[in-house]
Amino acid sequence: MVTKLVIVDYGMGNLHSVLGALRYLEVESELSGDPKTVAQADALLLPGVGSFYQAMETLETSGQADALREAVLGRGRKILGICLGQQLMAEHGDEDGGHAGLGFLPGSVTRLSGSGGLKVPHVGFNTVRFEPQSRLFAGFSTPVDCYFVHSYRLEPEDRPGLVGLCDYGGNFVAAYEHENVFATQFHPEKSQTNGLRLLSNFLAV
């Protein structure tokens, strides 16, 4: 069976970097914003850089949000949300006055505190501590350095699915996986071979 991997194109962010990483891994994928294509995908990537509010407005008005719900909640297809993509899959985001998210994973997205004089946005490679049973981090034995660029983050409440934590003025959710829903706050497509391996782990699930 040919797996149809769709990168959701909703007009925001570094879609081509994600596409480049998949090409390097010799994986075929399709860039699409068409709700029908999204709904019928076998696997989905939801990348993104930008504003939570703006992205959710676009996803809802274009019909892409419903298509994502059908694929992920209705048909149980696997999805990987990257950076803003992870945040959009949460229940709620505070950015720009607040907006409901897709609700694929529990929790809210709030602004990094910047406590202790830390700079916001949080930009650069930082260390992710992961749960040993994580499927995304299969093959890694020590904490993994990954590339982050963000001002908002998912708060780390005690819940299943929290597989990766990063500390930047306090812990936040660096990686999430539960059943068919996967997400990273960092950019695997910009995290050198650490990220390429993680992407290939997601594809192999």
Binding site: L25, F125, Y147
Partner: peptide
């Protein structure tokens, strides 16, 4: 500095097997 396995990139394609 950040750490990664630089030569691991070549193995990743094999790790995945044939293109999906």
């Amino acid at each position: 500095l950040a750490n990664w396995d630089p030569v691991g990139a070549v193995d990743l394609r094999r790790h995945l097997g044939p293109a999906a």
